[in-house]
Amino acid sequence: MSINDLMSYQDVVTYLHGKNRTKHLLFGNGFSMSYNSGIFSYNALSDFIEKIDDELLNQLFASLNTKNFELIMQQLDSFAEIAKIFSSDPDLVSKIEGASDKLKTSLIDAVKALHPEHVFTIPEEKCKHCFSFLQSYLENGGFVFSTNYDLLPYWVLLRNKSAVAIDGFGRDLENDGDEFIPDESREYSELRWGKYKDSQTVYYLHGALPFFDNGVDVIKETYTTQHYLLDNIKARMEKKEYPIFVTAGDGRQKLTHIMHNKYLSHCYDKLTCIEGSLVTFGFNFGEYDTHLIDAINKAAHYGKKSGGKLFSIYIGVYSDDGLHHIENIRSRFKCKVNIYNAKTLNIWGH
């Protein structure tokens, strides 16, 4: 069998509609590559770690056995403060701070190289076309899961103001009290995750660049009239605040990172209890994605007695090699596996 013998995306949609079954979406880097393969590539944001020409940083990544840049940045910040107190060697502090600055600068450069400059750079027609694709899941009771940490899906949903695209973030009234407060005098917090988590429909399984963990709350950075989103993200990083996202590592390392963050663990837990069918696009279930296969298998057993479980998964492939890969790992899934031709899905209206 070749990719040309597979069902089309429209075949998948038509079949699930006939079954009256809720469908959910899981997409990976292929979603962004289909927008522009010239600037988006697999693991582009994590690959920069391996390309940093700094002996100290390379030794640090190796000794901690992690590519979790958020952890490394925090370790460097803490180490620098400790060194100021306990070390009489000024060169040591300078060396640590220099490594920290180099890592931070490299990340910012990688982010900016990876993205369009801002949300309005995405052509209106492409933005609307992509939104229609995402909305077809959200408006019919489904959830959207992303393993990407780039800004494309965030921008598309923000620009089109979907009433059902809920990421769980909201603002709290800071000067709430017994007395009446007129609207113009009300003070609101930053966007904090949790206020709308019970009605959440969009889940970033590996985090996203606008999300920051301040130790108490998970905060979402926003676009402002003064600065574009990437500029605000850069400003936070310069204040030693770092985006939440799960970078390279095997499935176990990724799951460990996920379970130590309340936002990420909530998103993962939601994937483990979805019902109906799951459609994937631009996600190849590679050797480092075992944690997501485990989550899907949990969903296949969730509510088994009541019938409210995940019945099937529809995996999109782009090539015969991709088809053969999914055929080879089909037995790892505990629900019915169907494969469709991902080339028949035009997300961005090219």
Rank of each mutant, 00 (worst) to 15 (best):
L264V: 06
K254H: 03
R21T: 13
T225V: 12
F145Y: 08
A295I: 00
A165P: 12
D231K: 07
S37W: 06
F131V: 07
D53N: 14
M33V: 09
K197E: 04
S265K: 13
Y242P: 03
D91W: 01
N338A: 02
V164W: 12
N328T: 15
S312R: 03
Y204N: 10
V12D: 02
D178K: 12
H291I: 07
D231S: 05
I315Y: 05
V337I: 11
F79L: 00
K304W: 14
R21H: 15
G141I: 03
D47W: 07
K126R: 14
I293H: 05
Y15G: 02
Y9H: 06
E124K: 10
P123R: 00
T66Y: 00
G286W: 12
F27R: 06
W155F: 13
I313C: 03
I96R: 00
L152H: 07
A165W: 14
I39P: 08
F69V: 11
I166K: 03
C127P: 01
L158M: 11
L25Y: 13
Q253V: 09
F79K: 00
N284D: 09
D167S: 04
I85C: 02
T344E: 09
K112E: 08
F31C: 04
L209V: 09
E190G: 13
V337K: 11
E125K: 15
E125R: 13
K298L: 15
G308Q: 03
F69N: 06
E275H: 14
T280Y: 06
E139N: 15
M237Y: 04
H291W: 09
A83R: 01
Y137F: 11
S185L: 13
F180G: 12
S106P: 06
H257Q: 14
V111E: 02
N261F: 10
F283Q: 04
F281V: 07
D183M: 06
S34K: 08
Y42E: 10
L64R: 02
P116H: 10
E50F: 15
K84A: 00
S319Y: 08
F86W: 11
Y15C: 03
P153C: 08
A99S: 13
D5L: 09
G316S: 10
I233T: 02
L292F: 05
T225C: 13
G276N: 06
K309G: 14
I315N: 07
K95L: 04
T290P: 01
F61P: 02
H118W: 07
F40T: 15
N297S: 01
T14D: 05
G18V: 09
L191W: 12
N175Q: 03
I219M: 15
H266K: 09
K84W: 00
Y263D: 02
M73S: 14
A62Q: 11
D217P: 05
L152G: 04
Y15I: 03
V164P: 09
I313M: 03
R159N: 09
K239W: 07
T272C: 05
Y35M: 07
K195S: 04
F281N: 08
F311Y: 14
Y228T: 08
L16K: 10
V317T: 00
Y137L: 01
T201A: 00
F40Q: 13
C127H: 02
I244F: 04
S41G: 12
D89H: 04
M73K: 11
A299Y: 11
D167I: 08
N160A: 07
W193A: 04
K126W: 09
N68C: 09
S87D: 00
E97H: 00
L158H: 10
D269C: 08
R171I: 01
K126E: 09
G28H: 14
